[in-house]
Amino acid sequence: MSRRRSLDETRELLLDTGADILIDSGVNVTLGAINLMDVCRAAGLTTAGSAYKIWATQEDYRIALMRHLLRTAVPGTEAIELLTATLEAPDVDLPDFTELIRTVAAANARDNIANKAAPVYLALWLAALHDPVLADELHTADRELIDAYGAMYEALAVRYGLEWVPPFDGRHLAVSLSALIEGLDLRSRATPAIVGDPLVRATGPDGTDQEWHLFACGVEALVGAFTRPRSDDDREHTHV
């Protein structure tokens, strides 16, 4: 006799299955329309009994699923890893700032377009317009994301001897860059030809050509406008 699933395992199974249904159906099934019985069936459970031991109502399941999606749908994992590694790198290994922007932004854009859950994330925002509970959850998740990126950008600025041009801070950069990458992502997902190929720019060593993703060009422009070299040039090499 096969081992019975624990409640935690069933929980994970039903959340993953619900997320798969939403992601695979694109935007044709909304969170509000997802049915716990269907999810149980898709997960191979014969009844919804064990599901209702975990969630009292279908609504409770939907809220749990939404939180699960927010945890898994947020793009930028590779970019966050690269930036964290940079923050923790010894001084001698600190990459050139322009090169950091070029590579991390390209990774971020790649992550985004490969992320099948990204349209679901946007669909959640759309649904939130008519659903206050969902709106609160999304708001909190997004604020946490912007805060996290904002803090990371501020730590990077310190690391690279930059200061913020008033009135900007890391959060303004985080909101602007999130908007830019989401805007580019929406366009490239629907109609890839609009966004086009990477640009070739002579930014390499000795003026050699390098490929620049559109987003990377935008990051460079916004970072250049929102920050400047620290006036006292007294760089703190703080490890965060």
Binding site: V175, I181, G183, L184
Partner: peptide, 13 residues
């Protein structure tokens, strides 16, 4: 394209 993307992204957010 960049301005349009940024406008869309900020409109969404």
């Amino acid at each position: 394209t960049m301005v349009a993307a940024m406008t869309d992204g900020l409109t969404v957010r």
